[in-house]
Amino acid sequence: MRMHNADETCGIAQAALVLGDWWNVLVLREIARGHVRFDALASEIGLSRKVLTERLGRLVASGVLSRSLYQRRPVRYEYLLTDAGVALLPLLVAMQDWGDRWLLGDGTLTATAEADGAEHARVHSLVGNRLPSDLELPGPEGKSLPIAPPESTATVLFTYPGTGVEWGPIPGAAGCTLEHRLFTDAWPDFRRAGVALRGVSTQLPYEQAEFIQAENIPYPLLSDTTHKLTAALRLPTFRAADRLRHKRLILIIDATQTVRHALFPIEDIRRAVEESLRLASEA
Rank of each mutant, 00 (worst) to 15 (best):
R2Y: 15
H4M: 12
N5A: 12
A6M: 14
C10A: 12
G11F: 13
G11V: 09
Q14A: 13
A16G: 01
W23F: 11
N24G: 13
R29D: 15
A32T: 04
V36M: 04
R37A: 13
F38W: 06
F38L: 10
D39S: 14
L41T: 07
A42L: 06
A42Y: 00
E44P: 02
I45A: 11
I45W: 06
S48R: 11
L52M: 07
R58E: 12
L59M: 06
S62R: 07
V64H: 00
S66L: 13
R67F: 01
S68N: 03
S68H: 06
Y70S: 09
Q71D: 15
R72W: 09
V75R: 15
R76I: 00
Y77S: 09
L81I: 06
D83H: 10
V86S: 08
L89P: 02
L91E: 14
L91R: 15
V93Y: 00
L103C: 08
L104E: 05
D106E: 13
G107A: 03
G107E: 02
T108V: 14
L109W: 00
A111H: 01
A113R: 04
D116M: 04
G117M: 02
L126N: 11
V127W: 04
N129S: 15
D134M: 05
E136F: 14
E136Y: 10
G142D: 07
G142K: 08
S144Y: 11
P149R: 07
E151D: 15
L157Q: 04
L157K: 05
F158I: 04
T159R: 01
Y160S: 08
P161I: 06
G162W: 07
T163A: 15
V165R: 02
E166Y: 13
W167D: 09
W167A: 08
P171R: 10
G175A: 10
L178D: 13
D185V: 09
D185A: 11
P188R: 04
R191C: 14
A193T: 09
A196I: 04
A196K: 02
R198K: 11
G199T: 05
G199I: 00
V200R: 06
S201F: 04
L204K: 14
A209H: 09
I212H: 08
A214S: 14
E215S: 13
N216M: 06
P218K: 08
Y219T: 07
Y219N: 10
L222P: 03
S223W: 06
K228I: 11
L229N: 07
L235C: 02
L235R: 00
L235F: 03
P236I: 05
T237D: 03
R245N: 01
H246D: 01
R248V: 03
L249F: 09
I250G: 03
I250K: 03
I252M: 03
I252Q: 04
I252T: 12
I253Q: 10
D254G: 07
V259S: 07
R260A: 06
H261S: 15
F264I: 03
F264N: 06
I266A: 10
D268W: 04
I269F: 01
A272T: 01
A272D: 02
V273Y: 09
E274H: 13
S276F: 11
L277W: 09
L277F: 11
L277H: 11
L279F: 13
